[in-house]
Design a protein around this nucleic acid. Structure first.
Lengths: 223, 223
DNA sequence: CTATGTGAATCGATTCACAGCC
DNA sequence: GGCTGTGAATCGATTCACATAG
């Protein structure tokens, strides 16, 4: 529960936005809570309750207007304006992320790529030139960068995180398989690729030997 | 709640394993629930309750033995033996994932890489030769592949998912920004890179203008 | 004295049931 | 008739309090 919004609700906003955008691309003008719920594996009540936290922008008898919904959700997420992001670590994964088109399309722009390997500094990655990590504090402050992506090896992650926080970055998206410790007030989200696979493997395993004989009606959980 | 284990608990098992492995590498022989809780941002009670679902393997007055804990958690996750994984989509992201060392280290082995682009078929990606997606059914069945990673464009994702399910795959790790619909009994986990950034941006934004004047004690949530 | 394991109590999130609007 | 918004009820997860073991 942050700022009056339940955590669980906050985590679903992005899903609603993604789905609304998909539907609009298909030329659909409005969408009902029922429809959103079905495709996202939620209940209609849940969708309505979530959306109602941000004011009433559905019309009884009609549903939600896709355009309006998208605009509204973007404002909530703060992606109605472009946000600059720094990327640290120009290894395989970092290079892939640097040229990942999805970020741009959703309101994020990677404006700087850093690495501590001087062999990589000066080389091009997508449209960016890899910069020496020593320049990080200067660049982050100059460009008012609040968000950063960490795609560095696990051993380096904590050190890089400290530098980023020192440079005024307030949110870290961590791809390194390491648990970061940061000061209160700094947000960290971990994308743990191996852990995701583990979870998936576990889900598959548990479905094979369910204690409950009945199959879970729930088709494919956490999308 | 699957097979007697609360969902929330299942999602934390991987975290415990990761932390136990880190601690063992540092030469630590035992760990207390208190210590695990602190570094993972949980409470000690929660850790104990979670671990207790799988039997009693902690020692009062001492804590949990790292070795024993790791072995136990690996068995639960099914990563005590190597699991073969297929990767579909040899674009930037797919290539990075194909040579991501973390999968191997945690019990997963990518045994085949597919793409539908004939320009890519036959080329090397890491240690793998990209295969025509038409061979997918044959290879998946031959190698008894249960898990697959999708790193294809959003438009192609549903079609590829259908092919994978048809080929007997039971768990999909989806990197495409699209919501997949799959038959009941198939597990899907989505790694939505943009959505992760959105969540992070939202967390930062909400912390800036908290309705509750007191700062959340919770340092950096979902690790 | 330290640390686990667990029933009981609390807290938060989901679902139900229905009033109100198009 | 179809669909939203919301208090009340239910359900699940977290925390508390404490009995028990090293």
């Amino acid at each position: 529960m942050i700022a009056g919004i339940p955590k669980a609700t906050a985590q679903r906003i992005s899903l609603y936005l993604q789905q609304a955008e998909t539907l609009r691309e298909r030329g659909q003008a409005t969408v009902s809570s029922e429809e959103l719920a079905k495709v996202l594996g939620l209940t209609a009540t849940q969708v309505r309750k979530d959306l109602a936290y941000f004011g009433q922008f559905g019309r009884p008898g009609v549903g939600y207007q896709c355009d309006e919904l998208i605009q509204h959700l973007r404002r909530i997420l703060g992606t109605d304006q472009v946000r600059p992001v720094a990327l640290v670590g120009a290894g395989n994964l970092g290079r892939a992320l640097a040229s990942y088109p999805g970020f741009q399309r959703r309101g994020f722009k990677i404006v700087a790529v850093f690495d501590n390997d001087l062999q990589k500094v000066g080389k091009k990655v997508g449209e960016h030139i890899v910069q020496d990590i020593a320049k990080l504090p200067f660049v982050c402050r100059r460009d008012n960068i609040r968000l950063a992506i960490l795609s560095v090896p696990a051993q380096a992650a904590q050190n890089v995180a400290d530098q980023l926080v020192e440079a005024g970055v307030q949110g870290l998206l961590n791809f390194a398989p390491a648990t970061l410790s940061v000061p209160a007030g700094i947000a960290v989200a971990a994308v743990a690729l191996s852990l995701e696979l583990e979870q998936l493997g576990l889900a598959v395993k548990l479905r094979q030997q369910p204690q409950t004989p009945a199959a879970e009606p729930d088709a494919g959980a956490p999308q």
